[in-house]
């Protein structure tokens, strides 16, 4: 591996519903003995990461995944011709499928990725969680995919209120009545499309684990966290690392079973009887990944090393009781920078 790597990172939306881009970049910049040049990939002119020159060396606007992989590949080829990319870190759920499909072509261009395979990615979708749980003997809440409003009554008859109504990529609401279910169904359908997922509500404490699998069944890193402050969007604004072996064991079991490759975030709930349920498997590092780095496990850097074929021994320790507390900051930006990204698509 070269001493200086050029790494493209998406998810620069460091908003109140933050993408993982800036935390991943922060982790890469912490990589001891490695110099990194960071290329930001943005979808919107106002993604805050565009305007953080200490973190992002150069940014390029890229087409939305919905524009098709050909358009994205064309843009990446241009960026590669200018920057000489070594690695791409896609950080949005919605773009991962496209990047996974493009991974062989990117590799042939000398651009590495470290992503799960299509099968692994597909089987952990929220709407396939029951099959996933059964296949790998993991406890999951009962879930149903609902593909139209007419299916709602039949689906609901299989649940007791409250029921969790979820979008296929993001957003979840707890509904206590039929009216609320309809309201959330429409809201989620309009934003994320179908199916909408109904999930059994489990009363208990929520936990999260950030982890890295090497694609051969080994868990390279795993750090559990409990949210201490949650925004109205359900995002962690503060959190703390935990010493809870059961969470790590469940993560290892999952990664060993489906040979996960890449970063992931598990969302789990422990009910009153101490039974752990996997509620969601997010196929990328979460926005709070830097907490794990600060606690001693630089998983983003380890993912790049693995992509380059380096042997990476599993992390054995992390600091328990390490906290993060987010803050907001009004970054002052010159109109000329906004103009550049708006008109030229580069900054």
């Amino acid at each position: 591996m070269k001493n200086e790597l050029v790494i493209a990172v998406s998810g620069l939306n460091n908003t109140d519903n933050p993408g993982p881009g800036i935390p991943v970049i922060r982790a890469l910049r912490d990589w001891k003995g490695k110099k990194v040049r960071i290329i930001g990939l943005s979808y919107d002119h106002l993604e805050p990461g565009l305007y953080l020159p200490n973190w992002v060396d150069k940014s390029y606007q890229v087409p939305y995944p919905s524009a098709g992989s050909d358009n994205l590949m064309l843009r990446l080829k241009y960026i590669h011709s200018v920057e000489g990319l070594d690695f791409i870190f896609p950080n949005f759920d919605a773009e991962l499928f496209t990047y996974m499909k493009m991974a062989p072509e990117l590799q042939s261009m000398g651009i590495h990725t470290f992503l799960p395979g299509l099968d692994q990615f597909e089987e952990r979708h929220k709407y396939r969680l029951p099959e996933f749980g059964e296949k790998y003997q993991l406890a999951v809440p009962k879930s149903l995919s609902v593909n139209s409003l007419s299916e709602v009554p039949a689906a609901l008859s299989q649940f007791e209120f409250p029921v969790v109504v979820k979008g296929k990529f993001y957003e979840a609401y707890i509904a206590y009545s039929m009216d609320q279910v309809h309201n959330y169904f429409h809201r989620i359908q309009a934003k994320w499309g179908l199916p909408v997922i109904f999930q059994q509500f489990i009363q208990g404490s929520e936990y999260n684990v950030v982890a890295l699998g090497d694609g051969r069944g080994n868990t390279i890193g795993a750090v559990p966290m409990r949210k201490q402050y949650i925004t109205d969007k359900g995002k962690a604004w503060a959190g703390i690392t935990l010493d809870e072996p059961a969470l790590i064991e469940m993560t290892r079991k999952l990664i060993a079973a489906n040979q996960w490759r890449g970063g992931m975030e598990l969302e789990l709930i422990k009910d009153r009887n101490g039974q752990l349920y996997i509620v969601e498997i997010n196929p990328r590092f979460p926005a709070w990944v830097y907490l794990a780095v600060a606690a001693g496990q630089n998983m983003p850097a380890a993912a790049v090393k693995l992509a380059f074929g380096e042997e990476v021994p599993p992390f054995e320790h992390y600091e328990v009781g390490k906290m993060f507390v987010r803050y907001s900051w009004d970054n002052i930006v010159n109109l000329s920078d906004f103009e550049k990204i708006s008109t030229l698509g580069e900054l």
């Binding site: 966290m225 703390i240 935990l242 809870e244």
Partner: peptide, 10 residues
């Protein structure tokens, strides 16, 4: 100082 932390639950 009487600060108690449960690392299993946070």
């Amino acid at each position: 100082s009487g600060f108690v932390f449960n690392p299993s639950t946070g």
